[in-house]
Simulated scan of single mutants.
Amino acid sequence: MDVQTLLASCYASIFSRLICYPLDTIAIQHASSTRRPIFSVPLRTYYRGLLPSTVLVTPAISVYLTIYRQSKASLIPHFGDTTTTYLLAGTTAELASSFVWTPLEVIKSRLQISSTSKEGSLSENLKDIWRTEGIRGFYRGYLLGLVVFIPYNGIWWTVYEHTKKAAPRDWAISSQAALGGCVATMTSVCCCHPLDLIKTRYQVATTATVGRVGGERLEDARGITKVVRNVWGEKRFGLGFYKGLGARLVYATPSSLISMAVFEYFSPDRTAEMALSGSLQDGGLEEERL
């Protein structure tokens, strides 16, 4: 286990979450159609769930980034520092960490759309999910999450790595990472937002907050197909699938910029150089044997 990478991923998660959490809350409320006028509630409302979210999500991000780095290092000798490596490493990291991610996403989303202090309580949400849906409730939208995030991660890491390569060589590695994070996030969010919106709506469909919205939103709990039909009917030409896209970009872009800049600052990515160095050494040893 690469301790430096593990610690750097923790720092990245904590820094970005502390700074950008209110924007994430607004984005979740947009996607779930539970948003309220921004200044109609106290600022602290937008930090509801920050502590449990930080405590719970940070280990998941650490696992994810560490597995990506290790997968990339293992794949480079076979596929080189190429798009194939980025796609496979990103997919591996998502598959390995998604079992941890899904329950955290379900809980975090419910905390962020809550409209009362009771609904915003971590313990109350845990009890409610367990009482009404059991263990399956914590994995609500798990398969849909894989459908969303496997392509999302493939696109994200491919764009990120190529953008870093294209950045001026005289830039600090943290600046290259910040640029890569921005471009990768804008690209992947725009491509995958409709699927992410459906997933979010389905994960929060059984909450009391959504119940108060009423109408067709009550039918979201019946299944993903019903969510898709409801979203399609909310705006002409299927534009409902891009509801909250602006809010998502406003949150995700600076969050990604901060997290990747911090991550690469504390743990610069040298996997390609190390793999190349290792292959050259192996080649030298082969020549000596000959």
Rank of each mutant, 00 (worst) to 15 (best):
R270N: 15
S109Y: 14
S114R: 09
Y139F: 06
P77Q: 04
V210I: 12
W156H: 09
I173G: 04
F99C: 15
Y21A: 12
S117M: 09
R35I: 15
Y160V: 06
P77Y: 01
S188W: 00
T58A: 02
G80R: 09
S255A: 12
L104Q: 05
L245W: 01
I67E: 04
I129N: 02
V250H: 01
Y47T: 09
V63T: 11
N153D: 12
S277M: 11
T66P: 00
V210K: 09
Y139C: 09
P37M: 10
Y251I: 08
V210N: 03
A12S: 10
A177H: 04
Y68S: 07
W171M: 05
T45M: 00
D81P: 15
S13Q: 03
R17W: 15
A60D: 08
P22A: 14
Y64M: 07
L179G: 06
G215I: 15
E133N: 11
L144I: 14
A247K: 10
A31K: 12
N125E: 04
H78K: 09
S267W: 02
D269M: 13
S279D: 01
F266D: 05
S97G: 08
V147T: 05
A73I: 08
G134R: 03
V231I: 04
R248S: 15
A89C: 08
S117G: 10
A31F: 02
P194I: 05
Y139R: 07
G180N: 12
R48M: 11
V41S: 03
D196Q: 14
R201Y: 01
Q281R: 11
G214I: 12
T5E: 07
I28L: 07
F39A: 14
R169F: 00
F138L: 10
V148D: 14
V227H: 03
L95R: 07
W232D: 07
A12I: 05
F149Y: 03
H193P: 12
G283E: 03
I67N: 02
T45C: 06
A247T: 05
S98V: 13
A172V: 01
L276C: 14
T84W: 03
I76H: 02
A247H: 03
V159P: 11
I67D: 01
P194F: 01
I135N: 06
Q112V: 10
